[in-house]
Write a protein that binds this DNA or RNA. Structure first.
Lengths: 243, 243
DNA sequence: TGTATACCCGTTGTATACAAACTTTCTTTA
DNA sequence: TAAAGAAAGTTTGTATACAACGGGTATACA
């Protein structure tokens, strides 16, 4: 179907996730409609969709803006993931199909491959502050792989409700993760943690899987919080709002 | 603000949650607009809102209908609650305010009060199949109390994201409740389980709280599954109550 | 100069008209 | 009679016009 609203939705989403529409930016219907060459109606639909995803939130004055993710939100979202993904891992131990297990392993393989490429071509990023386009692409790639892993994990649980809820959490974190991954290029630990999760699931050991997920998310949360606090002290951003 | 869409949203929501708009019923914009005396625009807005809440889902043919909650969904939703509410309880141990603790205790007191009233006026329901209006009201009351408890628990965590996610789960479970009528569950056990949760939280013992929540939800899930299985085998739709 | 009021402009909410896609049914033809 | 196609009806998508609400500014008056 050639619906305009889905096109504008995708375009808007891309603008938000790429940072062209910055967090906190007010979304006004008519200018957006002009920008995309459509009327206000599909813009409204698109914004509603984004609101549903958590990428757009209502302002205090009833207006709409790109969601602002605070440090507190990041922590809260990680706690939600902690609860949901432990259940997902336990469910995966019971219900993951062979194909899904294979997908998870593929994901890990891609991760290692991507990591080796980055290590070869770029090396570690401890030297400078600036990030080249190639680095940016590779880091973007890692982010995608990580997201794929967690999405596959959710799907492997065989619980569609869980998938839906986690999807929402991931959407809200997308803004956050976009900025934090650049600050935290050392992801070898992450892949190791993913491997432990997969191993536990393949052994159908739900307790071990839950523990592995818990450890992974607690570690990730710590990494992100550290990165965010570093960001905050570096810039002169007032209060809790980060972006 | 006297926005029409919020009025129609509330009206539609009420119709869905009261069962006047049955699960699976297709939602067509123009008839609904005629029914509520508004144009299609606010109807669309309201439906989008309900879709966001999970009370409306898209049909296979792209149409919209009142969400259909299956038995499998019920089990999956309980698993989601299991994950989220354990986190909520642990959060509550850290962040619950004295006022919130008091509210939780009030909730329990109301539960005991309601229970004694039901016991006095009605007695247990082991005898017959039919349920009087008074019984129905009292069971409705208990359901509200139970929902209040879990809502307060979520809020006590101090995690708004968690509150949002649990709200969605509760909404969908409310739909399931409508597909059947009530059956008197063993409520004394439920209140006792609630009490254990509160005690753990008041002692700020997050591990105990998580265990208490886990035990409670596993028991609740078992109760519901048992009721559902009996419902399937038995000819008469006695129904279930979700606690 | 400070405050209050009135008006203008920007933004969202609502109604309505029209278009496009899909369904269904009836008709026509092989 | 069956199948294919066309026409009518249904439903959602889109554009647009207008209304209502609110904020900000300018002006008038104290």
């Amino acid at each position: 179907m050639g619906k305009l609203f889905s096109k504008t939705y995708l375009a808007l989403r891309q603008e938000i996730l790429s940072g062209k529409l910055a967090s906190g930016k007010c979304l006004v219907e008519q200018p957006l409609a002009d920008k995309f060459g459509v009327s206000r109606t599909p813009i409204r639909e698109a914004i509603r969709q984004l609101q549903q995803e958590g990428l757009v939130e209502s302002d205090r004055r009833g207006g709409l803006r790109v969601t602002v993710v605070t440090i507190a939100d990041a922590i809260h979202l990680y706690d939600c993931r902690l609860g949901l993904e432990q259940i997902a891992a336990m469910g995966a131990c019971e219900n993951a199909t062979p194909a899904q297990l294979e997908d998870l392993q593929d994901c890990l393989a891609q991760a290692n491959l991507a990591d080796s490429i980055v290590t070869e071509t770029i090396g570690n990023n401890s030297s400078g502050l600036s990030i080249s386009p190639e680095q940016s692409d590779e880091l973007e790639n890692r982010l995608r792989i990580d997201q794929s892993f967690h999405r596959l994990l959710a799907e492997s649980s065989g619980n569609p409700q869980l998938v839906d809820l986690l999807e929402q959490v991931f959407s809200k974190m997308a803004l956050l993760r976009l900025t934090t991954t650049y600050q935290q290029p050392d992801v070898l630990e992450i892949w190791a943690e993913h491997e432990r999760i997969i191993e536990a699931i393949m052994q159908r050991d739900s307790q071990a899987a839950a523990v592995a997920v818990r450890d992974h998310l607690i570690a990730s949360k710590a990494r992100v919080v550290q990165a965010l606090q570093g960001l905050r002290t570096g810039a002169s951003l007032q209060g809790i709002a980060l972006f």
